[in-house]
């Protein structure tokens, strides 16, 4: 159509971002790299009367389970381990699927993309919990909680995965259909 800039909002027009998938993979890799120290470094440093306790995400959940709160331990494991890993898998799968033929329908993949985009932000909840705990539990000698190094890596990992999901152009999912001559474009 020859229009280079959107008449309405002034944004540069591009049919498809030429580097969309590269950007997705770059952020994806950064997120994955940050996710490793997020699990090996301690997330919380709890200091009570007689002991200092540094626990990683998984160790913390296991400890809570030992205390008998299986429900909370499951929620923590789900929110900070299962969901991030599922997100890495889902973004990678979507990025691969637009280049290669796949049996999963476009609607399903669109749904997967929407779920990933929606859930991505909620992983920041871990960071906020750490922030609230460290601000709140400052009771002099009785008990103090301080954030550990893992929190910064975890936050970075969440931010990079969000950027990765945003960089993915959902129209690429439907381009595959257009190329293969799909007819159900209502």
């Amino acid at each position: 159509m020859g229009t280079k800039v959107c008449d309405r909002c002034g944004h540069k027009l591009r049919s498809r971002h030429p580097m969309s998938l590269q950007t997705v993979w770059a952020f994806w890799l950064m997120g994955l790299i940050c996710y490793i120290p997020a699990n090996t470094y301690p997330m919380l440093r709890t200091q009570t009367l007689f002991q200092v306790d540094e626990s990683t995400i998984i160790a913390g959940a296991v400890e809570i389970a030992h205390h008998g709160s299986y429900g909370i331990a499951a929620i923590i494991l789900f929110a900070s381990v299962v969901i991030p890993l599922a997100k890495f898998w889902a973004v990678a799968y979507l990025a691969v699927s637009v280049k290669n033929p796949t049996r999963v329908s476009n609607q399903r993949r669109q749904l997967l993309y929407e779920v990933v985009e929606y859930i991505g932000r909620w992983s920041m909840i871990d960071i906020f919990v750490v922030a609230i705990l460290s601000a709140l539990v400052q009771l002099n000698t009785l008990a103090t909680i301080n954030p550990g190094m893992a929190s910064i890596f975890f936050a970075l990992s969440v931010i990079f995965t969000m950027l990765s999901a945003q960089a993915f152009d959902s129209r690429l999912i439907w381009d595959v259909q257009a190329k293969s001559g799909g007819s159900d474009a209502a």
Partner: peptide
């Protein structure tokens, strides 16, 4: 807890990550 009291605002919570590289996280939060 046992006579030790502490009240925090949201700004306190956001700025809980202090010291070294953690300050970046504070600002982000």
């Amino acid at each position: 807890a046992a006579g030790n009291k502490n009240a925090v605002s949201i700004l306190d919570a956001a700025l809980a990550f202090s010291g070294g590289p953690m300050i970046v996280l504070s600002l982000a939060t």
